[in-house]
Amino acid sequence: MELIRLEQIRKTYPQPQGTITVLDGIDLSIPTDEFVAIVGPSGCGKTTLLRIINGLITPTSGTALYRGKPLNGVNLGCAMVFQSFALLPWLTVRENVELGPEARGMDAEQRAKKANFFIDKVGLDGYEEAYPRELSGGMKQRVGLARAMAVEPELLLMDEPFSALDALTSVALREELLDLWRDPEIPLRTLLLVTHIIEEAVELADRVIVLSNRPARILKDLAVPLKRPRNKKSEEFGQFVDEIFSLIA
């Protein structure tokens, strides 16, 4: 089943010195049950593409379809995890997690149930009454993940979710993300990750879309042939990373 189809997506922004083209001729299909990563140089337009899929911005030209229908406004089939966590500092962990379900109109009992479930799944039991300022970056991103998953999206969008974290924290969270994806109790099957870290894309995804410098075009759409769990120290892993690096460089 095809979840997302992008056809000849182009996005431009008018500037005083002339029009800037961010995306140019993007064709992309994302089926259900796939973990897709988009990699490309910083500032190439990856986040813009993610925002078009989320319905937060409209393309200048081209068509964005969700389940075969043109996107018109915010895509309620998606939830987003942000690099900067985007937590509300005056709310506790539990209240932040409940925000997503609340915005989708769930009643108090239902959203408390959802929040409890996902707080448990991401390992935040014990932190329910903590405020974001009391949390480390890793714990904040767990809240971001729980909040996004609590609306049970068909497609989870992640915009550089581990880039603001130190190396050890991001390693731990990447493993936990894979555990969540494999967890049969969580209806999270389709993921779209945007990252500028090639190793992260190869470690996590089934498929890697490589974008060029701005204006972004798709340079290559690669299936990752490595079995899971992936050994980041293996020769095959290194070769695949090198192949993508040579495309971008």
Binding site: S136, G138, M139, D166, A167, L168, T169, S170, V171, A172, L173, E175
Partner: peptide, 8 residues
């Protein structure tokens, strides 16, 4: 933090 320990 515990997450760093788990990452290690």
């Amino acid at each position: 933090g515990m997450t760093r320990i788990l990452g290690l």
